[in-house]
Write a protein that binds this DNA or RNA. Structure first.
Length: 938
RNA sequence: GGGCCCAUAGCUCAGUGGUAGAGUGCCUCCUUUGCAAGGAGGAUGCCCUGGGUUCAAAUCCCAGUGGGUCCA
């Protein structure tokens, strides 16, 4: 079946007397030293062999196993690399979490654009796989958090014409050595070589593919050896199992994965992986939740775990069937077994989830409604529910801290703080949601109906309330709910709006022949004038940027020079403006962009190809941008100092008058905190330390400063540009002032929450800060002048005025009522008419609605029908009728309002209406008695 | 990044274009030895902000602000 069969005929297998066999169960091909072996050894073809029968020469803890692996490969000339964060989006933008060690080196290293930090290397990389979340705790082997131990080698073909096009050259090692290393490592652990099988299992993923080998020992898949060597290619010579065609690449990469938890588990032979990996935490949780077992029960649990381990229950739906089978085999009822196992499953899951949270929060993920923050929130809430469910009453921040401590994080106080804040938020959500459900349940219970599915979806989608919680509360109120099986797909269907399509701006290859422009804005960040040769000019139709001199529709020109000082838009810094001058003409530069190293100066008029031009940059604009750019570094540094180390940039935009940065933080920034950030920022300005740039090797830079360098994105290349501002170091391509003092001053203008967990800080630097302060002061001064007080007294005065204004409103209301009563009892102005047995008062009163209503009410109190008209704003009527009089006020108003070109209505005893035609008001009132009589007779 | 939901008395919330409500808390009085409680009366409000539609907007529409939630 394998088209890649040849790929697996390794010299190493030959030398070591391996034989290739076909599994009698699944038909896969595998390699073994055991002539008599029939199956590939992987469940379900075979059961776990290692439970109660540990596989190595000793028991290893997680830490011991990790060390054993890394030092083994160090002895084999691999360099040990520190693990990367679990938040993979800190160095790549296509994934959220690190799910394998190779993620650390995608896409720049695997494609050969940048060199690996070492070659070959070994690493134990923490990973998180959310897709396993439902299985955690239940199957005995799934964990959401795990470490993937690995050895990697990055190779490039040796027969290339231009080997230097890749960041690494030649072959380090390939398949034979990889299998040999794996074999040797097993040997070093005291495994029996006869029992190891190597299954042929081609690998496909993410546009790449290659032969791969699964390594099975005692029924457990302990390693996967992937030989990434092909890329998707419609004309490729290999067809892989995904149905696509692939061809060989110039680079080929050894990608291995050894599950640390699995190895630890096999070394101990415990029934579940959890007991091998977190024994202390599980003991603590059991004790805390009061889970105790008799000798007999403990035996049952043990045997059940063993059986569960054997079963192929990767899918949650299989769980119930598996549970039934296990119960039958143990000769107990499924219900009894579940009652015994469920608390344990919860405890296992809690331990795993806490480790997941420790990784996520320890690596600086802030809970939020977006991205990795959302995933962290989901895990946290799930963990909290599990704790409540099983009766663990230890605070969650303590549990997470237990794992964080073990994992060696130094920001544990912040992690605990985040957990506490999140738990508090969740508590509020639940409380609010609970009340909402109670109201609903009460309403539906009264109607004797169950809560409909639609409400259930709404509760979950808009309010985060799980259906089981609704079920519980509904039961308390004596009604039910209908939870459909496809509940979550119903929720999903509310979201299936059309995917926003990516706009592919296919850039013509017209720049391909042009050399990369010489950039002089780094070597002299203050240079503003230069000479250059025009290499080419491209005309673009009708793309005049509305903000420049060229109006829309006019043609614009992209001028390419051999060298420039113009800064192209990038890293949140807008492009420079300025002019290009030849002997004949001066053209305005309205925008500057960079494409594959070629800098385009967009101008309103053309210059001649081959001309020599003088360029000069709009100095004022550039200086303001530089101040703001340096200030941005200062502000984020100050924010980290004040808010904590977890603070990270989530976006930034520099400007002329103000700039903004978005930072990840788990709380709102209040005014006091904001003032503190501003104070620290200005302290850095006043220290007036120098601002330095350097171009170190990227891996050395990462080594020294960590991934916090990449606040504003990940640059490509062997060397990266670093900017040092006081103690802050960032990879940055922008232009900066020489010393922090050159920023002048920093004024924070505003903080707002752009998303949950993301705060936007808007600030101004230098002259822009002074201007902003002056604007604020002007507004205050104007307000003070209006109130006729000094500025300091504005708040107090404003409050007093506001209070007085409210009091007067109330007083006016009172007076209107009194006035209305007086009018009604005085019987003065109105014309009284008889309508059947009742008396009606028809009156014109040019006042507002409130007064009309009050007057009408007062007349009704006297037992009279009130018809009041006002010409204060168009024509308005109020008609009120005492109880027991057969006149419908709504109809009367409708009739009257029609006469003034409008409409009206209301209940039969009190109606309002009106129309725009005020001139006809008196006519309408004159007709009122007639209208009253008609309506009465109707 | 996208979708959805919410904003009304100190608090929790009703309110279907037509006179802003309930429960609780608050104030006063009464009953009671005290506590708990009960009875009677009273005050609660820029109905988040700004536009628009309408004779009329707490209510409908748009934008903003603040909060919540689901998904990728």
């Amino acid at each position: 079946m394998s088209e890649l069969e040849e790929e697996y005929r390794l010299d190493y297998f030959e030398e070591e007397d391996f034989v290739r066999k076909e599994c009698t169960e699944c038909g896969d091909f595998f390699w073994t030293r055991d002539e008599d072996r029939r199956t590939c050894g992987e469940p379900p073809c075979e059961d776990y062999q290692f439970i109660d029968n540990a596989g190595f020469d000793g028991e290893y803890s997680l830490e011991e196993m990790r060390e054993a692996f890394l030092s083994f490969f160090e002895d084999q000339d691999h360099e040990r690399i520190d693990p990367y964060p679990v938040a993979a989006n800190r160095w790549r933008d296509d994934v959220l979490l690190t799910q394998a060690s190779i993620y650390d080196f995608q896409p720049l290293v695997t494609s050969g654009q940048t060199p690996p930090p070492a070659n070959p290397l070994t690493i134990s990389q923490p990973c998180i796989r959310m897709q396993d979340i439902d299985n955690v705790g239940k199957t005995g082997r799934h964990t959401m958090a795990f470490e993937m131990m690995a050895h990697h080698a990055f190779n490039a073909r040796e027969d290339l014409e231009d080997p230097d096009q890749y960041a690494y050259q030649g072959e380090v090692y390939w398949k034979d050595e990889t299998v040999e290393y794996c074999d040797k490592f097993f040997e070093s652990m005291g495994a029996d070589p006869e029992e190891i099988t190597y299954i042929e299992d081609p690998w496909v993923g993410g546009g790449n593919a290659g032969p791969a080998i699964e390594v099975i020992y005692r029924g457990a898949e302990l390693a996967t050896l992937v030989f990434m060597s092909m890329e998707q290619d419609p004309d490729g010579e290999y067809e892989m199992k995904d149905g696509n065609r692939y061809s060989k690449m110039d680079t080929y990469v050894v990608d291995t994965g050894y599950g640390l938890e699995r190895w630890t588990w096999v070394s101990q032979g415990t029934p579940t992986v959890y007991e091998a990996v977190y024994p202390e935490m599980i003991a603590f949780l059991k004790d805390n939740a009061g889970v105790e077992h008799t000798e007999e029960e403990a035996q049952l649990v043990h045997r059940s775990s063993k059986l569960a381990g054997h079963m192929d229950i990767d899918e949650a739906e299989d769980m119930e069937a598996a549970r039934d089978n296990i119960a039958r085999e143990l000769d107990v009822s499924t219900a009894d077994l579940e009652a015994l196992l469920e608390p344990l499953e919860d405890i296992y899951a809690i331990a795993d989830h806490c480790r997941t949270l420790a990784y996520m929060l320890g690596d600086g993920i802030v809970p939020s409604n977006v991205g990795t923050g959302y995933l962290a929130r989901m895990v946290l809430r799930r963990t909290k529910r599990l704790c409540d469910n099983v009766g663990v009453d230890a605070p969650l921040d303590e549990l997470v801290d237990m794992q964080a401590e073990r994992l060696g994080y130094e920001n544990r106080d912040t992690v605990r703080d985040i957990v506490r804040t999140e738990i508090e938020k969740y508590r509020e959500t639940l409380e609010q949601g609970g009340r909402r459900v109670e109201r609903l349940a009460k309403r539906y219970a009264e109607e004797g109906e169950p809560i409909p599915t639609e409400e259930l979806v709404e509760l979950y989608d808009s309010h985060g309330i799980q259906p089981d919680m609704v079920e519980e509360i509904a039961a308390d109120f004596g009604t039910g709910v209908d939870v459909p099986d496809d509940f979550y797909s119903l929720v999903a269907s509310r979201h299936d709006s059309g995917q926003p399509f990516e706009e592919e701006t296919e850039d013509e290859d017209r720049f391909d022949d042009l050399p990369a422009t010489d950039r002089h804005y780094y070597e002299d960040q203050f240079g503003t004038d230069f000479e250059a040769v025009v290499l080419d000019v491209f005309e673009r139709e009708g793309e005049g940027a509305g903000d420049g001199d060229a109006s829309e529709g006019e043609p614009v020109y992209d001028v390419v020079l051999d060298q420039t000082m113009f800064y192209p838009e990038g890293g949140g810094q807008p492009a420079d403006r300025g002019a290009l001058t030849t002997d004949d003409t001066t053209v305005q530069v309205e925008d500057v962009q960079i494409r594959d190293g070629v800098i385009l100066h967009r101008t309103d008029e053309p210059v001649g190809k081959g001309d020599i031009v003088r360029g000069n940059i709009d100095v004022e604009r550039r200086r303001r941008l530089m101040r703001h750019h340096t200030a941005t570094h200062i502000v984020i540094h100050a924010a980290r100092e004040v808010l904590g180390e977890h603070v990270r940039q989530a976006g930034a935009q520099k400007g002329i008058d103000s700039s903004r940065i978005d930072v990840r933080h788990y709380e709102r920034i209040d005014r006091e905190t904001r003032d503190e950030i501003e104070r620290v920022a200005n302290e850095i300005v006043m220290e007036n330390t120098s601002v330095q740039q350097e171009w170190p090797n990227r891996h050395e830079a990462e080594e020294e400063y960590g991934f916090d360098l990449y606040q504003g994105g990940i640059p490509a290349g062997k060397n990266i540009r670093l900017i040092h501002v006081a103690e802050d170091v960032q990879a940055c391509g922008g232009t900066h002032v020489r010393r922090t003092g050159d920023v002048g001053t920093i004024k924070i203008l505003n903080t707002e929450r752009v998303q949950d967990g993301v705060e936007r800080i808007t600030f101004a630097a230098g002259e822009a800060a002074v201007e902003a302060t002056q604007r604020t002061e002007a507004a205050l001064a104007d307000a003070a002048e209006i109130l006729d007080v000094v500025p300091a007294e504005v708040p107090e005065t404003a409050e007093r005025f506001f209070e007085e204004w409210k009091a007067r409103g109330k007083q006016i209301e009172d007076l209107k009522e009194q006035l209305a009563e007086a009018r009604a009892s005085g019987g003065a102005a109105g014309e009284e008419v008889e309508v059947g047995d009742a008396t009606a008062v028809v009156q014109r009163l040019d006042a507002d609605m409130d007064e009309l209503r009050a007057t009408a009410n007062a007349l009704v109190e006297e037992g009279k029908i009130a018809v009041i008209g006002s010409g204060a704003d168009g024509a308005q009527f109020v008609v009120a009728v005492p109880e027991g009089v057969g006149v419908n006020a709504g109809e009367v108003v409708g009739e009257l309002a029609r006469k003034v070109g409008g409409g009206g209505g209301g209940p039969p005893d009190f109606a309002q209406g009106g129309g725009p035609d005020g001139a006809k008001l008196d006519d309408a009132l004159e007709d009122a008695p007639e209208v009253l009589r008609q309506v009465r007779n109707a």
